[in-house]
Design a protein around this nucleic acid. Structure first.
Lengths: 203, 203
DNA sequence: GTCTATAGCGGGATAGAC
DNA sequence: GTCTATCCCGCTATAGAC
């Protein structure tokens, strides 16, 4: 009888898609309602405000990209295994969700967004990263890898994995490449990305 | 007497800053007027519509990042010189204009934007790139470098140069780094970026 | 050219009937 | 829980006085 679970889920799904496609300002409550195939007032009945829906959608987007990554960071795999897994997860996840990175980063970059809104994600990332940092510091002391700055290290990984998706629209338009070929190109380059990153921390 | 030149320029400057900071949807005509310290109706008097102002602002943003780059691509420098110059220009330009890349790419990614609006930029990039492509094809035939896919090549360069700026907000928040240190970090890594790219096209 | 006033619309949100 | 009607604000754009 209770169909409310379904409606709630339909709203969240529609809100997520709409925000990811259009950003906070570009997403309209009316569009979300239409997409969920329900009345606008239902959005407010269940979730009270647009801001509220946005927070939920952003959380899902963040988890979509970083959920598995954070798990790997704090696992007990070796450094090289982690690099391999991380690159693999990034590429695979982003092939399936190409617009999510752009959503995450443009909203974070937006000055208008209150900083506090994203504070908890900072903590999550930082905590998971601390594990790998200890691991790498230890290896550096032993002399098996060079001493690595964590911010640079992560930036290097994300550069190769996420940049293509952030700017995908441009590349596909310029080089007239369709989604399938673009994805395949990245899947093909996975191994080379992994090799380069591993090489970059060698002594 | 004629102060209109000044007003026109003030409007363009204010529009540019406002669009770059907030994107198309986030930028309000009221904010632009306030920033230019003029009456809203002056915006319409001189530039008729928001769309019109946006196009001008986007053009300036594009030129800010790619103006010099396109010049280098079609110059008669050697391949390695071009790589060195391009990385240098990217880093230097983006240190001065850190928010511009995000503006360019989120607007291009936005589905709502008519494709045609960006068509001319495609042509500009493609033309300039053709010169370097011929150059590299020739070297590849001679066997002095490996055969290189241009899209992958450019993506690799932009990855390392632009990604840090696109996602700058996140990194600075997570690692608690201020603007100066962040910029310095990238300036310091310039040479290493150049070395890696040159190495990546070696046979 | 510059201002005020306001049209006109689209947006988020709510009241209240059912 | 769901719908209709509507409030009210903020936005772009324009009309018209000066």
């Amino acid at each position: 009888m209770q169909q409310s679970k379904n409606v709630e889920q339909k709203i969240i799904d529609a809100a997520y898609d709409t925000f990811v496609e259009n950003g906070y300002e570009g997403a309209k409550m009316r569009d979300i309602a239409k997409r969920a195939d329900i009345n606008i007032s239902m959005l407010h009945y269940y979730y009270r405000s647009k801001d509220n829906l946005f927070d939920i959608a952003f959380g899902r987007a963040f988890d979509c990209v970083y959920g598995k990554i954070l798990g790997v960071l704090s696992s007990d795999a070796s450094i090289n295994e982690k690099i391999e897994q991380i690159v693999g997860i990034y590429i695979d996840t982003l092939v399936e969700n190409p617009r999510v990175p752009n959503f995450i980063f443009s909203e974070i970059a937006q000055k208008s967004q209150p900083n506090q809104r994203f504070a908890k994600y900072r903590t999550m990332v930082f905590d998971a990263m601390a594990v790998l940092k200890r691991q790498m510091d230890l290896e550096a002391e032993k002399g098996s890898i060079r001493s690595v700055n964590m911010m640079e290290f992560f930036m290097d990984i994300e550069s190769v994995c996420m940049y293509p998706f952030l700017t995908r629209g441009l590349w596909q338009k310029i080089f007239d490449v369709d989604d399938t070929s673009f994805n395949q190109m990245l899947i093909n380059r996975k191994e080379s990305f992994i090799r380069n990153i591993i090489k970059s921390i060698e002594k």
